[in-house]
Design a binder for these strands. Sequence first.
DNA 1: GTGCTAATTGAAAAAGTTTTTCAGTTGCCA
DNA 2: TGGCAACTGAAAAACTTTTTCAATTAGCAC
Lengths: 133, 133
Amino acid sequence: MAAELRANGHKLTPQRLAVVRVLREATEHLTPLQVLERARGIRSGVGLTTVYRTLDLLSELGFVRRVHLGGGCQAYAPVRQRAGHHLVCQGCHHVVDFPCAGLTELIEQTARQTGFTVASHLLEFEGLCPACQ
Amino acid sequence: MAAELRANGHKLTPQRLAVVRVLREATEHLTPLQVLERARGIRSGVGLTTVYRTLDLLSELGFVRRVHLGGGCQAYAPVRQRAGHHLVCQGCHHVVDFPCAGLTELIEQTARQTGFTVASHLLEFEGLCPACQ
DNA sequence: GTGCTAATTGAAAAAGTTTTTCAGTTGCCA
DNA sequence: TGGCAACTGAAAAACTTTTTCAATTAGCAC
Ligand SMILES: [Zn+2]
Ligand SMILES: [Zn+2]
Ligand SMILES: [Zn+2]
Ligand SMILES: [Zn+2]
Protein backbone atom coordinates (compact mmCIF):
# COMPACT_ATOMS: atom_id res chain seq x y z
CA MET A 1 0.00 0.00 0.00
CA ALA A 2 2.82 2.37 0.88
CA ALA A 3 4.08 2.58 -2.69
CA GLU A 4 0.61 3.33 -3.99
CA LEU A 5 0.03 5.93 -1.32
CA ARG A 6 3.06 7.81 -2.52
CA ALA A 7 1.98 7.35 -6.13
CA ASN A 8 -1.31 9.00 -5.22
CA GLY A 9 0.50 12.01 -3.83
CA HIS A 10 0.27 11.30 -0.13
CA LYS A 11 3.04 11.67 2.39
CA LEU A 12 4.47 8.60 4.00
CA THR A 13 4.45 9.58 7.64
CA PRO A 14 5.39 7.02 10.29
CA GLN A 15 1.90 7.25 11.79
CA ARG A 16 0.27 6.55 8.48
CA LEU A 17 2.63 3.72 7.75
CA ALA A 18 1.86 2.15 11.12
CA VAL A 19 -1.86 2.16 10.36
CA VAL A 20 -1.23 0.80 6.89
CA ARG A 21 0.84 -2.01 8.31
CA VAL A 22 -1.76 -2.88 10.92
CA LEU A 23 -4.35 -3.30 8.22
CA ARG A 24 -2.12 -5.15 5.83
CA GLU A 25 -1.42 -7.71 8.54
CA ALA A 26 -4.92 -7.95 9.94
CA THR A 27 -6.79 -11.21 9.55
CA GLU A 28 -9.87 -9.98 11.39
CA HIS A 29 -11.85 -6.82 10.97
CA LEU A 30 -10.75 -4.00 13.25
CA THR A 31 -12.52 -1.02 14.76
CA PRO A 32 -10.76 2.35 14.81
CA LEU A 33 -9.93 1.77 18.48
CA GLN A 34 -8.43 -1.63 17.74
CA VAL A 35 -6.41 -0.14 14.92
CA LEU A 36 -5.18 2.53 17.33
CA GLU A 37 -3.97 -0.05 19.85
CA ARG A 38 -2.10 -2.03 17.27
CA ALA A 39 -0.67 1.00 15.54
CA ARG A 40 0.70 2.20 18.87
CA GLY A 41 2.47 -1.12 19.18
CA ILE A 42 4.34 -0.20 16.01
CA ARG A 43 4.74 3.53 16.63
CA SER A 44 3.83 4.88 20.03
CA GLY A 45 1.97 8.15 20.13
CA VAL A 46 -0.30 7.66 17.15
CA GLY A 47 -3.51 9.61 17.71
CA LEU A 48 -7.04 8.40 17.27
CA THR A 49 -7.77 11.32 14.94
CA THR A 50 -5.04 10.12 12.63
CA VAL A 51 -6.46 6.62 12.69
CA TYR A 52 -9.85 7.92 11.61
CA ARG A 53 -8.31 10.04 8.91
CA THR A 54 -6.12 7.25 7.63
CA LEU A 55 -8.96 4.76 7.54
CA ASP A 56 -10.95 7.23 5.45
CA LEU A 57 -8.02 7.67 3.13
CA LEU A 58 -7.42 3.94 2.75
CA SER A 59 -11.11 3.43 2.07
CA GLU A 60 -11.10 6.02 -0.67
CA LEU A 61 -8.07 4.44 -2.23
CA GLY A 62 -9.69 1.03 -2.02
CA PHE A 63 -7.14 -0.55 0.30
CA VAL A 64 -9.63 -1.32 3.03
CA ARG A 65 -13.33 -1.97 3.12
CA ARG A 66 -15.75 -1.25 5.88
CA VAL A 67 -17.35 -4.43 7.21
CA HIS A 68 -20.97 -4.29 8.37
CA LEU A 69 -21.69 -7.85 9.46
CA GLY A 70 -20.28 -9.40 12.62
CA GLY A 71 -20.72 -6.59 15.10
CA GLY A 72 -21.46 -3.00 14.27
CA CYS A 73 -20.65 -1.19 11.07
CA GLN A 74 -17.44 0.48 12.16
CA ALA A 75 -14.94 -2.24 11.41
CA TYR A 76 -12.40 -2.29 8.63
CA ALA A 77 -10.67 -5.13 6.84
CA PRO A 78 -7.94 -5.16 4.22
CA VAL A 79 -8.95 -5.56 0.60
CA ARG A 80 -7.09 -8.56 -0.76
CA GLN A 81 -9.21 -8.85 -3.87
CA ARG A 82 -10.20 -5.67 -5.65
CA ALA A 83 -13.28 -7.06 -7.37
CA GLY A 84 -14.45 -8.92 -4.33
CA HIS A 85 -16.35 -8.80 -1.08
CA HIS A 86 -15.83 -9.86 2.49
CA LEU A 87 -16.78 -13.05 4.29
CA VAL A 88 -16.71 -12.70 8.08
CA CYS A 89 -16.48 -15.40 10.74
CA GLN A 90 -19.15 -14.99 13.41
CA GLY A 91 -16.86 -16.58 15.96
CA CYS A 92 -13.48 -14.89 15.64
CA HIS A 93 -14.14 -12.14 13.10
CA HIS A 94 -11.63 -13.61 10.72
CA VAL A 95 -12.22 -11.98 7.33
CA VAL A 96 -11.46 -13.34 3.89
CA ASP A 97 -12.22 -11.98 0.45
CA PHE A 98 -14.23 -13.77 -2.15
CA PRO A 99 -14.62 -12.79 -5.79
CA CYS A 100 -17.69 -10.87 -6.88
CA ALA A 101 -19.35 -13.11 -9.42
CA GLY A 102 -22.77 -14.05 -10.66
CA LEU A 103 -24.60 -10.89 -9.65
CA THR A 104 -25.08 -9.47 -13.13
CA GLU A 105 -28.26 -11.32 -13.86
CA LEU A 106 -29.85 -10.41 -10.53
CA ILE A 107 -28.86 -6.78 -11.01
CA GLU A 108 -30.31 -6.63 -14.51
CA GLN A 109 -33.47 -8.34 -13.45
CA THR A 110 -33.87 -5.98 -10.51
CA ALA A 111 -33.30 -2.95 -12.73
CA ARG A 112 -35.86 -4.21 -15.22
CA GLN A 113 -38.47 -4.90 -12.57
CA THR A 114 -38.06 -1.71 -10.56
CA GLY A 115 -37.13 0.84 -13.19
CA PHE A 116 -34.11 1.83 -11.10
CA THR A 117 -30.62 1.94 -12.49
CA VAL A 118 -28.22 0.01 -10.31
CA ALA A 119 -24.86 1.70 -9.86
CA SER A 120 -23.22 -0.24 -7.05
CA HIS A 121 -23.82 -2.98 -4.56
CA LEU A 122 -22.89 -4.11 -1.10
CA LEU A 123 -22.42 -7.82 -0.48
CA GLU A 124 -21.13 -9.60 2.59
CA PHE A 125 -21.27 -13.17 3.78
CA GLU A 126 -21.20 -14.26 7.40
CA GLY A 127 -20.46 -17.73 8.72
CA LEU A 128 -17.87 -19.80 10.52
CA CYS A 129 -14.25 -20.18 9.60
CA PRO A 130 -12.68 -23.65 9.60
CA ALA A 131 -11.17 -23.12 13.06
CA CYS A 132 -14.47 -22.01 14.61
CA GLN A 133 -16.69 -24.69 13.11
CA MET B 1 -47.43 -5.31 11.64
CA ALA B 2 -49.65 -4.49 14.60
CA ALA B 3 -51.43 -7.81 14.51
CA GLU B 4 -48.16 -9.68 14.43
CA LEU B 5 -46.74 -7.63 17.24
CA ARG B 6 -49.61 -8.71 19.45
CA ALA B 7 -49.23 -12.29 18.27
CA ASN B 8 -45.62 -12.16 19.42
CA GLY B 9 -46.67 -11.07 22.87
CA HIS B 10 -45.97 -7.37 22.66
CA LYS B 11 -48.17 -4.60 23.89
CA LEU B 12 -49.78 -2.29 21.43
CA THR B 13 -49.01 1.08 22.90
CA PRO B 14 -49.84 4.25 20.98
CA GLN B 15 -46.15 5.17 20.82
CA ARG B 16 -45.23 1.85 19.34
CA LEU B 17 -48.10 1.97 16.90
CA ALA B 18 -47.02 5.41 15.75
CA VAL B 19 -43.52 4.15 14.98
CA VAL B 20 -44.93 1.10 13.24
CA ARG B 21 -47.14 3.27 11.12
CA VAL B 22 -44.29 5.60 10.20
CA LEU B 23 -42.29 2.69 8.90
CA ARG B 24 -45.17 1.01 7.14
CA GLU B 25 -45.77 4.19 5.21
CA ALA B 26 -42.16 5.10 4.55
CA THR B 27 -40.92 5.02 1.00
CA GLU B 28 -37.40 6.17 1.92
CA HIS B 29 -35.07 4.93 4.57
CA LEU B 30 -35.33 6.81 7.85
CA THR B 31 -32.89 7.51 10.65
CA PRO B 32 -34.08 7.21 14.25
CA LEU B 33 -34.35 11.00 14.38
CA GLN B 34 -36.46 11.10 11.24
CA VAL B 35 -38.67 8.37 12.63
CA LEU B 36 -39.06 10.42 15.80
CA GLU B 37 -40.20 13.50 13.87
CA ARG B 38 -42.77 11.60 11.90
CA ALA B 39 -43.97 9.57 14.85
CA ARG B 40 -44.57 12.79 16.75
CA GLY B 41 -46.75 13.93 13.90
CA ILE B 42 -48.97 10.96 14.63
CA ARG B 43 -48.68 10.96 18.40
CA SER B 44 -47.03 13.89 20.10
CA GLY B 45 -44.70 13.16 22.97
CA VAL B 46 -43.08 10.02 21.62
CA GLY B 47 -39.56 9.77 23.03
CA LEU B 48 -36.37 9.05 21.16
CA THR B 49 -35.62 6.17 23.51
CA THR B 50 -38.84 4.51 22.49
CA VAL B 51 -37.99 5.00 18.84
CA TYR B 52 -34.66 3.23 19.33
CA ARG B 53 -36.30 0.44 21.28
CA THR B 54 -39.06 0.00 18.76
CA LEU B 55 -36.68 -0.05 15.81
CA ASP B 56 -34.73 -2.80 17.56
CA LEU B 57 -37.91 -4.72 18.15
CA LEU B 58 -39.13 -4.35 14.59
CA SER B 59 -35.71 -5.44 13.32
CA GLU B 60 -35.78 -8.57 15.43
CA LEU B 61 -39.25 -9.37 14.20
CA GLY B 62 -38.16 -8.80 10.62
CA PHE B 63 -40.50 -5.90 9.91
CA VAL B 64 -37.74 -3.47 9.12
CA ARG B 65 -34.24 -3.79 7.82
CA ARG B 66 -31.29 -1.56 8.52
CA VAL B 67 -29.98 0.06 5.35
CA HIS B 68 -26.24 0.63 5.02
CA LEU B 69 -25.89 2.23 1.59
CA GLY B 70 -26.96 5.75 0.80
CA GLY B 71 -25.71 7.62 3.84
CA GLY B 72 -24.54 6.06 7.06
CA CYS B 73 -25.65 2.77 8.49
CA GLN B 74 -28.31 4.03 10.85
CA ALA B 75 -31.28 4.11 8.53
CA TYR B 76 -34.25 1.78 8.52
CA ALA B 77 -36.66 0.77 5.80
CA PRO B 78 -39.77 -1.39 5.87
CA VAL B 79 -39.46 -4.98 4.74
CA ARG B 80 -41.97 -5.51 1.97
CA GLN B 81 -40.51 -8.78 0.83
CA ARG B 82 -39.33 -11.22 3.45
CA ALA B 83 -36.87 -13.10 1.27
CA GLY B 84 -35.50 -9.97 -0.27
CA HIS B 85 -33.09 -7.09 0.03
CA HIS B 86 -33.12 -3.36 -0.39
CA LEU B 87 -32.37 -1.18 -3.36
CA VAL B 88 -31.73 2.46 -2.45
CA CYS B 89 -31.91 5.55 -4.63
CA GLN B 90 -28.81 7.70 -4.30
CA GLY B 91 -30.83 10.80 -5.07
CA CYS B 92 -33.91 10.66 -2.87
CA HIS B 93 -33.30 7.61 -0.69
CA HIS B 94 -36.37 5.92 -2.05
CA VAL B 95 -36.13 2.25 -1.06
CA VAL B 96 -37.67 -0.74 -2.77
CA ASP B 97 -37.32 -4.45 -2.11
CA PHE B 98 -36.07 -6.94 -4.61
CA PRO B 99 -36.20 -10.72 -4.29
CA CYS B 100 -33.12 -12.59 -3.16
CA ALA B 101 -32.28 -14.91 -6.00
CA GLY B 102 -29.31 -16.43 -7.69
CA LEU B 103 -26.88 -16.32 -4.80
CA THR B 104 -26.78 -20.03 -4.02
CA GLU B 105 -24.07 -20.87 -6.46
CA LEU B 106 -21.81 -18.02 -5.34
CA ILE B 107 -22.34 -18.98 -1.70
CA GLU B 108 -21.53 -22.62 -2.32
CA GLN B 109 -18.51 -21.76 -4.38
CA THR B 110 -17.25 -19.39 -1.71
CA ALA B 111 -17.77 -21.98 1.01
CA ARG B 112 -15.90 -24.56 -1.01
CA GLN B 113 -13.00 -22.28 -1.76
CA THR B 114 -12.59 -20.80 1.73
CA GLY B 115 -13.58 -23.67 4.00
CA PHE B 116 -16.01 -21.34 5.77
CA THR B 117 -19.64 -22.22 6.25
CA VAL B 118 -21.89 -19.39 5.12
CA ALA B 119 -24.82 -18.76 7.42
CA SER B 120 -26.20 -15.44 6.26
CA HIS B 121 -25.57 -12.59 3.91
CA LEU B 122 -26.03 -8.89 3.45
CA LEU B 123 -26.94 -7.58 0.03
CA GLU B 124 -27.91 -4.08 -1.03
CA PHE B 125 -28.11 -2.30 -4.34
CA GLU B 126 -27.72 1.41 -4.86
CA GLY B 127 -28.73 3.42 -7.90
CA LEU B 128 -31.26 5.92 -9.20
CA CYS B 129 -35.01 5.62 -9.07
CA PRO B 130 -37.07 6.46 -12.16
CA ALA B 131 -37.84 9.95 -10.86
CA CYS B 132 -34.21 10.78 -10.13
CA GLN B 133 -32.72 9.49 -13.35
C1' DG C 1 22.74 19.72 2.67
C1' DT C 2 19.25 23.80 3.42
C1' DG C 3 15.15 26.02 3.41
C1' DC C 4 10.39 26.29 1.98
C1' DT C 5 5.64 24.98 1.99
C1' DA C 6 1.66 22.40 1.91
C1' DA C 7 0.26 18.34 4.12
C1' DT C 8 -0.09 16.14 8.35
C1' DT C 9 -0.42 15.47 13.22
C1' DG C 10 -2.51 15.08 18.01
C1' DA C 11 -4.67 17.20 22.09
C1' DA C 12 -8.68 19.21 23.29
C1' DA C 13 -13.16 20.60 22.54
C1' DA C 14 -17.38 20.11 20.32
C1' DA C 15 -20.86 17.62 18.26
C1' DG C 16 -23.48 13.78 17.64
C1' DT C 17 -25.29 9.16 18.64
C1' DT C 18 -26.81 5.37 21.50
C1' DT C 19 -27.55 3.17 25.93
C1' DT C 20 -28.69 3.06 30.71
C1' DT C 21 -31.38 4.37 34.70
C1' DC C 22 -35.36 4.75 37.14
C1' DA C 23 -39.66 6.38 38.76
C1' DG C 24 -44.05 6.66 36.93
C1' DT C 25 -47.61 4.88 33.61
C1' DT C 26 -50.47 1.69 31.17
C1' DG C 27 -52.03 -2.30 28.17
C1' DC C 28 -53.81 -6.64 28.92
C1' DC C 29 -55.40 -10.69 31.21
C1' DA C 30 -57.88 -12.94 34.86
C1' DT D 1 -61.80 -4.10 38.15
C1' DG D 2 -57.71 -5.02 39.92
C1' DG D 3 -52.83 -6.50 39.50
C1' DC D 4 -48.61 -6.65 37.34
C1' DA D 5 -45.26 -7.14 33.95
C1' DA D 6 -44.28 -4.49 30.05
C1' DC D 7 -43.53 -0.12 28.60
C1' DT D 8 -42.42 4.88 28.59
C1' DG D 9 -39.69 9.29 28.57
C1' DA D 10 -36.50 12.56 30.83
C1' DA D 11 -32.10 12.83 32.25
C1' DA D 12 -27.67 11.21 32.66
C1' DA D 13 -24.01 8.48 31.16
C1' DA D 14 -21.37 6.36 27.82
C1' DC D 15 -19.57 6.23 23.37
C1' DT D 16 -18.20 7.58 18.87
C1' DT D 17 -16.85 10.81 15.44
C1' DT D 18 -15.65 15.41 13.78
C1' DT D 19 -13.71 19.90 14.16
C1' DT D 20 -10.18 23.18 15.56
C1' DC D 21 -5.81 24.87 15.63
C1' DA D 22 -1.07 25.47 16.74
C1' DA D 23 2.98 22.82 16.05
C1' DT D 24 5.49 19.58 13.27
C1' DT D 25 7.36 17.40 9.19
C1' DA D 26 7.82 14.90 4.50
C1' DG D 27 9.12 15.90 0.13
C1' DC D 28 10.77 18.92 -3.13
C1' DA D 29 13.60 22.66 -5.30
C1' DC D 30 17.82 24.74 -5.18
ZN1 LIG E 1 -23.40 -0.73 8.00
ZN1 LIG F 1 -13.54 -17.99 13.21
ZN1 LIG G 1 -34.70 8.88 -6.32
ZN1 LIG H 1 -30.46 -12.76 0.07
